[in-house]
Amino acid sequence: MNLLGRKKIWYLAISGIIILTGIISLLIFKLRLGIDFVGGSIIEIETKQNTNFSNDKIKQALADKNIENLSIYQIGEGGWVLKMKEIDENKKNEIINAIKNKVGESEERRFETVGPTVSQNLRQKSIFAIILAMFAIIFYIALAFRRLPKFLSPWKFGISAIIALVHDLLIVLGAFSILSHFWGYEIDSMFITALLTILGFSVHDTIVVFDRIRENFHSNSPYSGLDIESVANYSLVQTMGRSLNTSLTIILVLIVMLTLGGNTIQPFIVAMLIGMITGTYSSIFIATPILVFWHRK
Rank of each mutant, 00 (worst) to 15 (best):
Y223G: 00
I67C: 06
K30M: 11
L195D: 05
R242E: 01
K85H: 05
G39L: 01
D64H: 07
V231L: 01
L12R: 14
V256H: 09
G225A: 02
V38A: 10
T278M: 09
I87T: 05
F182L: 13
A287L: 11
R109W: 11
I255M: 14
K156H: 04
R123W: 11
Y140E: 02
V253L: 15
I251L: 15
S189G: 06
I137V: 15
K92D: 01
I43E: 09
N69M: 02
L4D: 11
S224F: 05
F37Y: 15
M240T: 12
I171W: 04
H218I: 00
Y234E: 10
Q74K: 12
Q124I: 13
V114Y: 11
H204N: 15
R6M: 06
D211I: 00
D205T: 07
I138W: 02
V172P: 06
M276Y: 13
I213A: 03
E112P: 06
F151H: 15
Q60I: 03
Y11T: 03
I178A: 08
N233F: 04
Y73T: 03
F268D: 00
I250K: 10
A144M: 07
L12V: 14
N66S: 15
A144V: 03
R110D: 10
Q266M: 14
V270H: 14
K100C: 01
V231C: 00
I269K: 07
K150C: 01
M190H: 04
P154D: 12
P149Y: 01
I14Y: 02
T47Y: 01
R214D: 01
S177R: 06
T117V: 14
V203W: 00
L31S: 09
A61L: 03
T197A: 14
I187M: 11
S177F: 05
Q266A: 14
A98K: 04
I42L: 09
I255D: 06
I274L: 09
I187Y: 10
R296S: 13
V103D: 07
N50F: 08
I127E: 02
I250G: 13
I72F: 00
I23Y: 08
N121E: 14
F111M: 07
W294T: 07
I159P: 10
Q60A: 09
I274T: 08
S282E: 02
R242A: 02
I277Q: 03
S235L: 06
G104R: 04
L27G: 11
F53Q: 11
K30L: 14
L244N: 13
L248H: 02
K125F: 02
F210I: 04
L179T: 09
M272F: 07
N93V: 04
V203H: 00
Q238V: 03
L258A: 15
I265S: 00
I24F: 14
L195C: 13
N52V: 09
N69Q: 14
K297N: 08
I35S: 12
N101C: 04
L148K: 05
K92I: 04
A164E: 04
L62H: 04
A194M: 08
E68Y: 03
L195Y: 10
I19R: 06
D188E: 02
F128A: 15
D168S: 10
R214E: 05
V166S: 14
I163L: 14
I131E: 11
Y140P: 01
D64Q: 08
E94N: 13
Q74C: 01
E108D: 11
